[in-house]
Design a protein around this nucleic acid. Structure first.
Length: 426
RNA sequence: GGAGAGAUGGCUGAGCGGUUGAAAGCACCGGUCUUGAAAACCGGCAUGGGGGCAACUCCAUCCUGGGUUCGAAUCCCAGUCUCUCCGCCA
């Protein structure tokens, strides 16, 4: 494996356009000492120059094969070593600071501190009118005897669930239905990936170093080697192109996978403790696109449409919102969230999140492509849920519930469920 | 788990102490020829970083990390990964 020089933000760009960089950090409401970054960068370059001067001298001596200069060469070696140490320290410090800075928001993204500044861009589907008080998914699931939270607590702990019988079938049907749709209609290629990723891969997509605490880490004999359960298939799918130079003719790359996802959800104590909205383990169908950098915005629209199409086909009411700068994830430059209507909460809840990460992840991963001019550029990466299966299951339970506590099966899913039309208690 | 073999540019693959950042071939790009294409011939073609407005120039990199040496792709040590054979196992 080649040594990887990690670059999360292009320091050259920061140097050249400090003003803009500071402005975009402000949009994210972040306090970052940019002047310190620039100072580190300057020092770093100063030492590099110093080192290179010595290295050149040494090289000349070696080439001359002049024995009288050999002792001098040895002294230079010591000098280089000293400078190298200093330079490495500064470089590491610089990289550490840079690796904690999130992606720069796209110009389209509304500026705001929190979800209150998100903007609704689309509302679709008909909100169901119930002649009775609609129940929550966990009431429905427990009444059907098909969701068992207590049992999961006993075997595993809180925030896990046993899904049983026809709901387990529904979960499986959803996975297959979503995959089939993305593969056959949306031109994604199906992948069944590993569910474990290296620390390096986690760094590539932006989960590390900042969100270490949210990850389930595996216990390994050799503690220097860190491995993690994937918090989303995005990690492993996006890293498929890491350290690669992709031929332009192979772009765009579109892949989809249905995988379990594992999240510690540190810092979410007390939020959504009831039901299966927020679990430590859940299934999700994930789409990932690798594109030429200028295609990011159009691909994001395309990807988001692939996600909403699933909700259209399932005939679930939803809305699409664009996240403001303060509510966006670490690696994203622009994000659409898709929220599905939950009758028991009388609220829209997130069921998918589609993001363009521009070259933010590809810089971390060293994923590049050659364009028509033979220039090597960092690729654009995008990821989106299409959709979160657990939450889709919830949405179906709640939106398709009947007065007697049974659940109508959405028409499109029936072929995937032995053509049953209804999920009953008996 | 045992025993061997290996890791070199987009790919194949030579080099095994000194102008080797690296032969050759393939792929790719440009040109000549051709009505067009193919073939043939000519030329170009690694990545990262530093300096410079630029032409350009300098440094690093032959799996990773140490060591030997004035000098390492080449020698030594440790590690990682890959392949083959045997064992074990969904």
């Amino acid at each position: 494996m080649k040594k990887i020089i990690i670059k999360m933000h292009n320091i050259k760009d920061i140097r050249k356009d400090t003003k803009n960089f500071k402005l975009s950090l402000k949009k994210r409401f972040l306090e970052i000492d940019v002047d310190r970054i620039l100072k580190l960068d300057e020092e770093n370059r100063k030492y590099i120059q110093k080192k290179e001067t010595f290295e050149r001298e040494k090289k000349d001596i070696s080439k001359s094969k002049d024995k009288t200069l050999f002792s001098k060469s040895k002294k230079i070696t010591d000098e280089i070593e000293k400078i190298n140490k200093l330079q490495t320290n500064i470089k590491n410090e610089l990289n550490e600071v840079l690796s904690l800075i999130p992606n720069i928001p796209h110009d389209d993204v509304p500026v705001g501190k929190d979800e209150k500044s998100n903007i609704e861009v689309l509302k679709s589907g008909k909100i169901p009118n119930f002649s009775f008080t609609p129940k929550s998914h966990y009431e429905l699931g427990e009444d059907l005897n098909m969701l068992d939270f207590d049992l999961a607590t006993k075997t595993t702990g809180s925030r896990f669930v046993f899904v049983k019988d026809k709901l387990a079938l529904l979960e499986r049907a959803l996975s297959n239905f979503m995959l089939d749709t993305h593969i056959n209609q949306n031109a994604y290629k199906e992948i069944s990936p590993p569910l474990i990723a290296t620390a390096n891969s986690m760094f590539g997509t932006g989960q590390l170093p900042k969100f270490d605490n949210d990850q389930f880490e595996l216990k390994l004999e050799d503690s220097a080697d860190r491995k993690f359960l994937i918090p989303t298939a995005e990690v492993i799918l996006t890293n498929m192109v890491k350290e690669k130079i992709i031929d332009k003719k192979n772009l765009p790359i579109r892949v989809v996978a249905s995988t379990p996802c594992f999240r510690k959800e540190a810092g979410s104590y007390g939020k959504d403790t009831k039901g299966m909205i927020r679990q430590h383990q859940f299934y999700k169908v994930e789409m990932v696109s690798i594109v030429e950098i200028e295609e990011c915005m159009s691909e994001l629209e395309r990807m988001t449409n692939c996600a909403t199409k699933i909700l259209d086909l399932l005939e679930l009411p939803y809305r699409k919102i664009i996240l403001c700068t303060g509510d966006m994830g670490f690696s994203a430059e622009k994000t659409y969230d898709i929220e599905v209507w939950l009758p028991s909460e009388k609220k829209y809840r997130e069921i998918s999140s589609c993001s363009s990460c521009s070259s933010f992840q590809s810089r971390r991963m060293k994923a590049r492509y050659k364009n028509e001019n033979n220039e090597i550029l960092f690729a654009g990466t995008l990821n989106g849920s299409g959709l979160a299966i657990g939450r889709t299951l919830i949405a179906i339970l709640e939106n398709y519930q009947q007065n007697d506590g049974s659940i109508l099966v959405p028409k499109i899913l029936r072929p995937y469920m032995n053509n049953i039309e209804k999920i009953n208690k008996f």
